[in-house]
C-alpha cells in the first residue's frame, strides 16, 4: 500500500518536474531564437548601407509588398470599417450617443485596427512569400551559389526585403485607414442615416494627426517584425520541401503572434511618451 503510494508520488513528482522542464525549455528556446532573429536583423540592417547599394532590389520589394497588397488591404479595410462602425453604432444607439460613432471608429482604426490588421494581412501575404522564396533558394543551393560568387546573400536577399517592408507598411496602413473610414462613412451616413456633418465634425474634433502617426509608426515596426522573422526562417531553412513548408508556416505564425504582442507594448510606450510630453 505504502509502496504503491510512493510510486504514485514519484510519478506525480516526475511529471511536475517534466512540466517545469518543458516550460523552461520553451522559455530558453524562445529567447535563443529571439536573439538569433535580432542578430540577423542587425546584420541585415547594417548591410543596407553597405556598397553596392541595392536600390533596384529595394524598389522591387516595395512594389511586391506595397503595390501587390493594395487591393486586399482596401477590401479588408472597407469591410472592417463597416463592421466596426455598425457594432459601435448598435452599442451607442442604446445610450443615444450615435454622434460619437464617427470619432470612436476613427480612433480605433487609426490607432489599433489599421496597423494591426495591415500587419497581419501583409505578414500572411508577403511574409509567407518571403519565407517560402528564401527557403526554396536555400534548399536548391541558390543562396550558397550567391555566397561562392562573392555576393553577400544577406545584403542581396534580406536587406532589400526589410527596407521594402519598412517603407510599404505605413503606406498600406494609410490605405487601410482611408478605406476603413470610407466604409464606416458609407454605412453610418448612407445606410444608417447618421448626420453627415456631425459624423465628420466630431472626427475632425477628436482625431489628431498624431493618432494617425501612431498607427503609421506601429505599422512600420510590424513591417520590420514580419520582415526579420520571415526572412530569418526562410534563410535558415533545412531539409527540402518539408523544411520550406515548415519555415513558411512558422515564419507567418510567429510574425502574427509577435505583431499582436508587440502592438500592446508599443501602444503603451507611445501613450507613456505622450503622457510625458503632456498630451492627453
Amino acid at each position: 500500500m505504502i509502496k504503491g503510494w510512493l510510486s504514485i508520488r514519484e510519478k506525480v513528482n516526475a511529471s511536475i518536474d517534466d512540466a517545469f522542464a518543458r516550460v523552461g525549455h520553451f522559455v530558453a528556446n524562445f529567447f535563443v531564437e529571439a536573439g538569433r532573429v535580432v542578430l540577423f536583423f542587425l546584420d541585415a540592417g547594417k548591410l543596407i548601407f553597405a556598397r553596392p547599394y541595392r536600390i533596384e532590389e529595394i524598389l522591387k520589394h516595395i512594389e511586391f509588398i506595397g503595390n501587390g497588397s493594395i487591393l486586399i488591404i482596401m477590401l479588408t479595410g472597407a469591410f472592417t470599417g463597416m463592421a466596426l462602425s455598425y457594432q459601435i453604432y448598435l452599442g451607442f444607439h442604446l445610450v443615444n450617443a450615435t454622434n460619437l460613432v464617427g470619432p470612436t471608429v476613427a480612433l480605433g482604426i487609426s490607432r489599433e485596427l489599421g496597423p494591426v490588421l495591415t500587419g497581419l494581412i501583409v505578414s500572411a501575404r508577403a511574409g509567407g512569400a518571403m519565407a517560402a522564396r528564401l527557403g526554396t533558394m536555400r534548399v536548391s543551393e541558390q543562396i550558397d551559389a550567391l555566397d561562392v560568387m562573392g555576393i553577400d546573400p544577406i545584403q542581396y536577399l534580406v536587406s532589400p526585403r526589410l527596407v521594402g517592408a519598412l517603407v510599404s507598411m505605413p503606406l498600406l496602413c494609410g490605405v487601410f485607414d482611408f478605406t476603413a473610414m470610407t466604409g464606416a462613412y458609407i454605412l453610418c451616413v448612407k445606410l444608417l442615416g447618421l448626420d453627415e456633418a456631425i459624423f465628420w465634425d466630431k472626427i475632425q474634433g477628436w482625431l489628431h494627426p498624431r493618432d494617425i502617426y501612431e498607427g503609421l509608426i506601429k505599422s512600420g515596426i510590424f513591417g520590420l517584425i514580419f520582415g526579420s522573422v520571415c526572412t530569418h526562417r526562410g534563410f535558415n531553412t533545412t531539409g527540402g520541401a518539408k523544411g520550406v513548408g515548415e519555415a513558411t508556416n512558422s515564419g507567418v505564425v510567429n510574425s502574427m503572434v509577435l505583431i499582436i504582442v508587440v502592438n500592446f507594448f508599443a501602444t503603451n510606450v507611445i501613450r507613456f511618451y505622450y503622457h510625458m510630453i503632456g498630451i492627453r
Partner: peptide, 15 residues
C-alpha cells in the same frame, strides 16, 4: 569576396 571571384562552382542541381 575577392578570393571567391577566383573560384567557380557547378552545383549538383546547377543552383
Amino acid at each position: 569576396i575577392d578570393f571567391r571571384c577566383r573560384l567557380g562552382v557547378l552545383f549538383q542541381n546547377a543552383a
